[in-house]
Simulated assay, not measured.
Amino acid sequence: MKIIHDPMLLRNNIKQFKTTGQEIVFIPTMGNLHDGHIALIKEGQKVASITVVSIFVNPMQFNNQADLKNYPRTLEADYKKLEAAGVDIVFVPSAEVIYPHGLETQTYIEVPVLSDVLEGKLRPGHFRGMSTIVTKLFNLVQPDHACFGEKDFQQLAIIKQMVKDMGMPINIIAVPIIRAENGLALSSRNSKLNAEQMQIAPLLARVMQQLAGDITQQTLNYDDSINKATQALEQGGFKPDAIDIVDAQTLQAVHSETKQAVILMAAYLGNTRLIDNKVVNL
């Protein structure tokens, strides 16, 4: 496994793989890797012989500087996991390498409509930063395939739209959420929970499952079900941030022609914001 920090060295290595006709799968991450990330890698290795993973905590997508500063960084442990998973290249650039002139004058990519709703409203600039860094990494790696988790449902929808709109010849592979035995969606943020909070955390998924059952029995007005879910989370020790039920294809309001809705959950447990989602057939 090669650990590369310099973009030109990365390009040279990619060129060598390309000249021998090998397909490349790419998994961009912010590190602090867990089994969910490894699942992305394993899925990608089914379709490509060369696996490239990036580790970069992207300052452009953090609107909270304290959140950026406190984001867990576990490089040495990450390297061991990636080597064990059979990764060929780990690209670990610095912020100075990615944004040599700073963020203020950096060209950016923005996907309209999909980036403006839901999480985009709650976290201004987040998806612009995400779209920009993913595009930049795509340009550097030139992958044939790229894997993203369905846990970040809105992010995945934005990336699919961006790749389509920009004519990028990249196959986007959506990988289902990996959960612990108790139902908790795996996340790097889980490491910030204390022992007591880890016992409470699976409630988010349980409430989501109950909400999913409720909406399949209802018309388009889900307010009562959302209120019930909000109360269940509050009683369990969460501080709900957002519970939305939208069309799974457009991320807009569910309507009479909607075939699939997606429940999007976000709630604080202490200072840690957890998210989850579930697609429901209507």
Results as ranks from 00 to 15, higher is better:
K2G: 08
I4C: 02
D6P: 05
D6R: 10
N13K: 14
K15M: 15
F17A: 12
T19G: 11
I24W: 01
I24M: 08
P28I: 05
T29R: 08
M30E: 09
D35H: 12
D35L: 14
I38Q: 01
G44N: 04
Q45M: 13
I50E: 00
V52L: 05
V53F: 08
I55L: 10
I55C: 04
F56S: 08
F56K: 10
N58K: 03
P59Q: 07
M60P: 02
F62Q: 08
N63T: 07
N63Q: 13
N64P: 07
Q65L: 12
D67K: 07
L68D: 01
K69C: 10
Y71Q: 05
E76D: 15
A77G: 11
D78L: 07
D78K: 06
K81G: 06
E83F: 12
D88N: 15
I89D: 01
P93L: 08
I98Q: 00
H101E: 14
H101C: 11
G102Q: 06
L103H: 07
E104Y: 07
T105Y: 12
Y108E: 13
V113C: 09
V117P: 00
V117L: 09
V117E: 04
V117T: 12
L118M: 11
L118H: 01
E119H: 03
K121Y: 10
K121I: 09
K121P: 02
G125C: 04
H126Y: 05
F127C: 02
R128G: 07
I133F: 04
N139Q: 14
V141C: 06
Q142C: 12
H145Q: 14
H145C: 14
H145P: 05
A146R: 00
A146F: 06
E150F: 00
F153A: 04
A157L: 13
I158M: 05
I159Y: 01
K160M: 08
M166I: 08
P169F: 08
P169E: 05
I170C: 08
I170D: 03
N171V: 13
I172P: 01
I172C: 09
P176Q: 11
I178P: 02
R179E: 08
R179Y: 07
R179L: 09
E181C: 10
N182E: 15
L184E: 01
S187T: 10
S187Q: 03
S191I: 13
K192F: 06
A205M: 12
A212H: 04
A212E: 08
T216H: 10
T216L: 11
Q218P: 04
L220G: 10
N221Y: 11
D224A: 15
S225E: 00
I226L: 04
N227P: 02
K228P: 01
T230C: 10
Q231I: 14
A232S: 15
L233Q: 03
E234R: 13
Q235P: 02
Q235A: 15
G236T: 09
G237N: 05
K239M: 13
P240S: 06
I243F: 03
I245M: 04
Q249Y: 12
Q249S: 15
L251P: 00
Q252Y: 07
Q252E: 14
S256E: 14
S256G: 10
E257C: 09
L264N: 00
L264R: 00
M265L: 09
M265D: 00
Y268D: 01
N271P: 05
N271W: 07
I275Y: 03
I275M: 04
D276T: 06
K278G: 09
V280K: 00
L282P: 02
